[in-house]
Write a protein that binds this DNA or RNA. Structure first.
Length: 905
RNA sequence: GCCCCCGUGGCGGAACUGGUAGACGCGCAUGGUUUAGGACCAUGUCUCGAAAGAGGUAGGGGUUCAAAUCCUCUCGGGGGCACCA
């Protein structure tokens, strides 16, 4: 095997010393900011998944460098956070100490993978020089009214002993430790990201000034759209009988208002207490509401199989469109966090409402006519699970053509002539009325589908259709009906169109130790003086006093009392009010630092800081930031679709408003790489299939590991690491080495000084593949080229050098070594990317495919650009073609120039 | 439940705007080379068939001269959101 170890060591050192990957930040002429997601320095060390992400990004950066860009490719560590803190607790050390240990290990590893990092610009989020500016940003947010403190019912992880953002709760469990999350009422700090919801959404499609939206992987854009969750809704006011109070509900289906048969309030709804005197069963209602409020969203949502609720006796709401009096309920299926926390229910056209109506035996009024069966096209029958056995047996008597079952569906194919009789059986089984029986056509037979949970579909129709029983909305369809009712309500002041978002404000405070302290001070004296005002007594730490340093304390263990560890450190929290000078108390929470690989506030702006890491006077120097930002290309994992990537966009918008920058989207291009799995499964410690790159780098060298990772599959789709295939890459690079050494030591080589024509199409392919992140096919193409070299036995030096240049971004070490061995100037990575000449892409003789009735029957060699008449003549001269056509007459000829000719007989 | 992605040899995966399916690599087989090898070299490798030929991209249906590619339904896998009114 080629001496990779020696080579890689040598060049790592040389690159570092000669700073070939350090662009001149001030003077660069063609700046290209190639960003990769800085890693979280976990105790386990650099993961092969990290290397996968970094290699893919690095190849692209190297490619751009060779194409003439000044590429800036910085790296740093996202080292604050609960993961490090927990690890320090576990092994009985201090996070500050551990950080230094991990830092060294990570940087050593990062140096070994062959990436062209700009080491001088590296940063660590736990460095006071960095988090000083994280805190500064917090202060700016505060000054602009975008940071606020609020008592809220928040997600609390009893194990991590801190609050969690909604995004960090997965199926009711803590994303990190899997402990069930509970609800707690705590005062917390929030950022008003909701204020930017519309802009965050719009920019995905169109940037201000009519420009096209940001160029991101489509799936990430979709995820953000879903997360922001815009709904065009209507607010409708229901007055309450014998009261001056009003219930404002929110709906996206105002068209169904004539079908409303009751109202439901969220347990937290303020009206419940306001109407206390009117509610006859107030104790019962209050009891229910209090119990519900203690439940987590998960318990109220997914977990709750059955609806619960209590009627507000003595309260009747009046439907504005028809004056009908409707009962009002409280139920935990309505959430205070969305809309107004109140809804009107239309059981005929909403499944949840229907569930609830069944429970309380409430009327169901249908206001939308279902489309007729014919109009539905394919039709299907669905039966409730319990009914299945008996009915199915009966149906089976008709002779089932085919039967198959899945966990949720049982499908029978029955002959057409039996359809009506089967429907009869279904009716007898009282599965629904005839209208709801639906059959799927399947050739000559029909498919009868029997699905569990079908009863709701039978009773509830959520689709569009002609409106009935709806007064002035009769005969309209949904869209038109909504418009009409909106106008109607607005004219009478009874409602108005409104837009709602699912996006919530960003909860950023955490009750832990290992994070940047929130730079706020609370003064009790001032609070008293201006009591009643919002945020009374709260002041930002004056900017000259930043950073608020995180003190090294002995007991950094989380308290679990809703208080951060710093709350018991007197020397930390005791301070003076910046306003009145009285004794005041510092905020002791730290800002959001959570997630294995990411700390949100810290990481939401790190790419700005890279441009000015040594500047102590500002977060970034405007002239340098202007030159390099926004980031030209960002490559990272899709798991950050809605967290890091959304927060970064939000902060960038704020920075623009502050006049700090002149753009509002931080990443011009974002590409999500695929997930790297191992032996068919997601890598995880519990499965024991985590691959650590070090072992392989030691055994085969970084070039081999890089190439293998990239060869696994399309970069944007991910790949499956299996040890078996790595040998193919080892062979490939060995062959490259052997060939290179032969040339370098004076074997006979042709030296024409020009790139051979046959290589040009390969240059084109490789260039395009790398530009499109299709590294797997780029490597395949390089392998093909090598095969050709070996077959020819005669090699020109120029061709081989070109080959090395093409391979250089992918395998930077071996190519650098061979480049030198061939007597070329350092460094290969600063050479110009090979160009291809289009005149060599065109072959003069091409193979024309000859088809008869669409089937390939032969091929003929023709001159490029040959016309139909000529091609036809040549094709028909072929024995095989003659035979295939036989006695038939050619009815039609399809001719695709330089590609094929097809005879239809 | 809703949204997105995917399904091609024994395996990872190629296939441009529909136009010779299986590039490249792994594995396997045969031969060579080597003291030996898990090293290297050569040849072969979708299925059936002696061949001519036929079939073949999860399955059904469709559009087309022509479908892995487009439409549609079903099945299966992965990811995201989820009582959001």
């Amino acid at each position: 095997m080629y001496p990779f170890s020696q080579i890689e060591k040598k060049w790592s050192k040389r690159w570092f010393e000669t700073k070939i990957y350090e662009p001149n930040l001030r003077r660069a002429k063609r700046p290209f900011y190639n960003l990769m997601m800085f890693p979280y320095p976990s105790a386990e060390g650099l993961h092969v998944g990290n290397m996968y992400a970094f290699t893919g990004s690095d190849i692209y950066g190297r490619f751009r460098r060779m194409q003439g860009n000044d590429v800036f490719q910085p790296i740093g560590l996202d080292g604050f956070g609960i993961h490090s803190e927990n690890y320090a607790l576990k092994i009985g050390t201090h996070p500050m100490k551990q950080a230094k240990v991990s830092e060294k290990r990570f940087y050593d590893q990062l140096r070994s993978i062959g990436n062209g990092f700009a080491w001088e610009e590296r940063l660590e989020t736990y460095d006071p020089e960095y988090y000083k500016w994280t805190q500064w940003i917090f202060v700016q947010m505060w000054k602009r009214g975008l940071a606020y403190r609020k008592k809220a019912s928040v997600n609390w992880c009893p194990s991590c002993k801190t609050v969690l953002a909604d995004e960090q709760v997965v199926n009711g469990d803590c994303e990190r430790c899997g402990t069930e999350v509970v609800k707690k009422d705590l005062e917390q700090w929030f950022f008003k990201i909701t204020k930017y919801a519309d802009r965050l959404l719009k920019n995905l499609d169109n940037l201000p000034g009519g420009k096209a939206g940001i160029d991101w992987s489509e799936k990430v854009k979709i995820a953000q759209r879903n997360w922001i969750g815009k709904s065009e809704s209507t607010e409708i006011n229901f007055s309450i009988k014998a009261s001056d109070k009003i219930i404002t509900v929110v709906t996206t289906r105002a068209d169904t208002i004539f079908g409303a048969t009751f109202l439901v309030l969220a347990p937290e709804h303020g009206l419940i207490t306001e109407l206390a005197h009117q509610i006859k069963n107030y104790d019962e209602v209050r009891h229910y509401a209090e119990k519900a409020m203690k439940k987590t969203d998960f318990e109220r949502g997914l977990l709750a199989k059955k609806k619960t609720g209590v009627r507000l006796k003595g309260v009747l709401a009046i439907n504005p469109v028809n004056g009908v009096e409707l009962p009002v309920f409280v139920s935990d299926f309505v959430l205070i966090s969305y809309g107004t926390g109140a809804i009107f229910s239309v059981p005929a056209h909403d499944e949840r409402d229907f569930e609830f109506a069944k429970l309380f035996h409430l009327p169901v009024i249908s206001v939308i006519e279902r489309p007729k069966r014919e109009a539905l096209g394919p039709i299907s029958v669905q039966i409730y699970d319990e009914d299945l056995s008996e009915t199915a047996t009966e149906i089976k008597r008709f002779g089932i053509a085919r039967e198959y079952a899945t966990p949720t569906v049982r499908v029978y194919e029955i002959a057409r002539k039996n359809v009506d009789r089967v429907i009869e059986i279904l009716e007898r089984a009282r599965i629904g009325n005839r209208k709801d029986h639906e059959l799927i056509r399947r050739g000559e037979d029909f498919t009868l589908e029997i699905k569990p949970r079908a009863i709701n579909f039978l009773a509830v129709y959520t689709g569009d259709g002609r409106h009935i029983n709806s007064g002035f909305l009769n005969n309209l369809r949904t869209e038109a009906a909504i418009k009409k009712v909106d106008t109607w309500l607005k004219e009478r002041g009874m409602g108005k169109p409104a837009v709602y978002y699912h996006l919530r404000d960003w909860l950023i405070s955490r009750q832990r130790y290992w994070g940047p302290p929130i730079p706020m001070i609370h003064c009790p004296a001032c609070a008293k003086a201006s009591s009643g005002k919002e945020n009374a007594g709260w002041y930002a730490v004056p900017e000259k006093d930043l950073p608020v340093k995180l003190p090294q304390i002995k007991n950094f263990r989380p308290t679990g009392k809703g208080e951060a560890p710093l709350a018991s450190v007197k020397s930390f929290y005791e301070t003076k009010c910046p306003e009145c000078g009285a004794k005041a108390r510092r905020e002791t929470d730290v800002s959001d630092t959570f997630l294995d690989s990411d700390t949100f506030l810290d990481s939401a702006w790190y790419f700005f800081r890279y441009t000015s890491v040594d500047d102590k006077t500002c977060p970034w120097r405007p002239e340098i930031a202007k030159k390099w930002l926004p980031v030209n290309r960002y490559i990272g994992g899709a798991e950050h679709s809605v967290l890091h990537l959304l927060y970064s966009r939000f902060l960038t918008m704020v920075f623009k408003e502050m006049g700090l920058i002149n753009f509002e989207e931080p990443f011009t291009e974002f590409r999500a790489h695929g997930l790297l799995i191992s032996s068919g499964a997601k890598m995880s410690k519990s499965k024991g299939n985590v691959v650590v790159p070090d072992v392989y780098i030691k055994k085969y060298g970084a070039d081999v590991v890089r190439l293998y990772l990239m060869f696994l599959g399309p970069y944007e789709q991910g790949g499956d690491w299996r040890d078996a295939g790595i040998i193919g890459i080892v062979r490939f690079l060995n062959r490259v080495w052997n060939l290179g050494v032969k040339l370098g030591t004076g074997y006979k080589v042709q030296s024409t000084g020009r790139v051979s024509p046959w290589l040009h199409p390969h240059i084109k392919e490789i260039t395009e593949d790398i530009a499109n992140l299709k590294y797997n096919t780029a490597i395949a193409e390089l392998m093909t080229a090598l095969n050709k070299f070996e077959k020819e036995k005669q090699i020109s030096r120029k061709d081989f050098e070109t080959f090395l240049l093409l391979l250089a971004p992918l395998a930077p070490f071996i190519t650098e070594e061979l480049w030198q061995k061939l007597g070329n100037k350092y460094s290969i990575h600063n050479q110009a990317w090979p160009k291809f000449n289009t005149k060599y892409l065109i072959q003069n003789t091409i193979t024309l495919i000859v088809q008869v009735n669409g089937k390939v029957r032969g091929q003929v060699s023709v001159k490029r650009g040959v016309g139909e008449t000529e091609a036809k003549k040549l094709a028909l001269a072929e024995e095989k073609i003659k035979k295939a056509i036989g006695a038939g007459k050619i009815k039609r000829t399809i001719f695709v120039k330089d590609r094929l000719i097809n005879f239809v007989v």
